[in-house]
């Protein structure tokens, strides 16, 4: 464990807490894409199957359980909570997620470390996470309402993987023979997907104004 990876995990956890607080405090999920939340639930389920058969550390296990529980809590709020589910703009959140899931799964079958069920699913989760934010970014473009908390959520979600990029560079230089091409390439793509959002987020922050996305 190094400081970059710990910072990345804490940023990831914080982003999820911010989203949960937004939904709980405002009793609204306006501007939040349910599809992205469901894709993340799929990412966590397919990535954390090793919870059942391998113990890495208490930290690792606790964080995985927290990520799984919070992901399903958010989905529950957006689907079942009587007040919150009315604020979900279903007709705007129409990204065809199958166009993300199928290619990622096929790619995981073709490019992986080991042709086993858990390894293919783990690889699938790495590829899927790189594109899971797309429905959320598309929704923002459509609804134009980037409320502060949702903007902070997306910013931190993008930042966590950028911190992981630094962690991978650090591990490459400090751990002999450390290689993770699949994760490195996928994590780089994932961070690049956020660059456009980062640009407008930082611009709004510098001009101290509400974030607005171009037409």
């Amino acid at each position: 464990m190094n400081i970059f990876r710990l910072a990345g995990d804490m940023t990831h956890l914080l982003s999820i807490i911010v989203l949960l607080l937004k939904i709980q405090a405002t009793k609204s999920c306006a501007g939040v894409s349910l599809k992205t939340q469901e894709l993340y639930a799929v990412v966590f389920v397919t990535r954390y199957l090793d919870l059942f058969y391998s113990f890495i550390s208490l930290y690792n296990t606790v964080m995985k359980i927290i990520f799984l529980l919070t992901a399903f809590t958010i989905i529950w709020y957006m689907r079942k909570h009587k007040v919150v589910c009315q604020t979900y703009d279903k007709e705007q959140d129409t990204f065809r997620v199958l166009f993300l899931i199928v290619p990622c799964f096929v790619l995981a079958l073709l490019v992986n470390h080991e042709m086993s069920v858990t390894e293919v699913l783990w690889t699938f989760s790495i590829y899927l996470e790189a594109v899971a934010i797309l429905p959320q970014l598309v929704l923002l473009q459509r609804t134009k309402n980037v409320d502060n908390l949702t903007g902070n959520y997306i910013f931190m979600l993008g930042s966590y993987r950028a911190l992981y990029l630094v962690n991978w560079v650090y591990r490459y230089f400090t751990e002999l023979g450390y290689r993770q091409w699949i994760v490195w390439v996928s994590g780089t793509v994932q961070t690049c997907v956020y660059l456009d959002f980062f640009y407008y987020y930082v611009q709004a922050w510098r001009n101290n104004e509400r974030m607005k996305l171009p037409g």
């Binding site: 990876r5 995990d9 990831h12 090793d50 391998s54 890495i56 550390s57 690792n60 964080m63 995985k64 990520f67 470390h113 080991e114 086993s116 858990t118 390894e119 783990w122 992981y164 962690n167 290689r179 993770q180 994760v183």
Partner: peptide, 10 residues
């Protein structure tokens, strides 16, 4: 190459 038990990251 890293195999499954190497997945020490979240």
């Amino acid at each position: 190459t890293s195999t499954s038990e190497d997945h020490d990251e979240l």
